[in-house]
C-alpha cells in the first residue's frame, strides 16, 4: 500500500465527521499533500485554505524552535487547529466551533503519530 493511500485511510474518518469541514495535510512549503473538504455552499473554505497555506511555515518555525505543540484559530463560527506531524508536515482541521474537540484531539494525535512513523525515513 502506498504512502498516500495509507495516509488517506488515516485521515478519511475525520472528513466523515459531521462537525469537520476540512482536513488538510500541508508540507512546509504550503503544498497540500492531502485535502478533503465538505461541499457546503454556506461555508467559504477557499479563503481559509489560502490563509492556511501562508501560515504553515510560521507555525512549523514555532513548533521546532519554541516547542509549540498545537495552534488554534477561531474565525466567526469556525475553528482551525494545526498539529505538527513531522519536520515538514502539519495537519490542519477546520471544524464548526461548536464541535467538541476534546476527544477528537486524541484521535487526531493518533493519526499524527501514525503518519509521522510513515514519513520519517
Amino acid at each position: 500500500m502506498s504512502l498516500l493511500l495509507r495516509i488517506s485511510e488515516l485521515l478519511e474518518p475525520f472528513s466523515s465527521d459531521p462537525g469537520i469541514y476540512m482536513v488538510v495535510l500541508h508540507r512546509i512549503d504550503g503544498v497540500p499533500i492531502y485535502v478533503k473538504a465538505k461541499r457546503d455552499k454556506k461555508v467559504k473554505l477557499t479563503t481559509l485554505l489560502y490563509w492556511l497555506e501562508g501560515q504553515i511555515k510560521e507555525v512549523l518555525y514555532y513548533i521546532f524552535t519554541r516547542n509549540l505543540s498545537e495552534a488554534s484559530f477561531k474565525f466567526q463560527d469556525m475553528v482551525v487547529r494545526m498539529y505538527p506531524v513531522s519536520k515538514t508536515l502539519v495537519l490542519s482541521i477546520i471544524a464548526k466551533d461548536e464541535t467538541p474537540l476534546y476527544k477528537l484531539d486524541l484521535d487526531l494525535e493518533s493519526a499524527c503519530r501514525e503518519i509521522s512513523s510513515l514519513v520519517i525515513v
Binding site: L106, D107, E109, S110, E114
Partner: peptide, 8 residues
Amino acid sequence: SRTIHTRG
C-alpha cells in the same frame, strides 16, 4: 500499542 482512539 501506540495510539488512542475515541471513535469507532
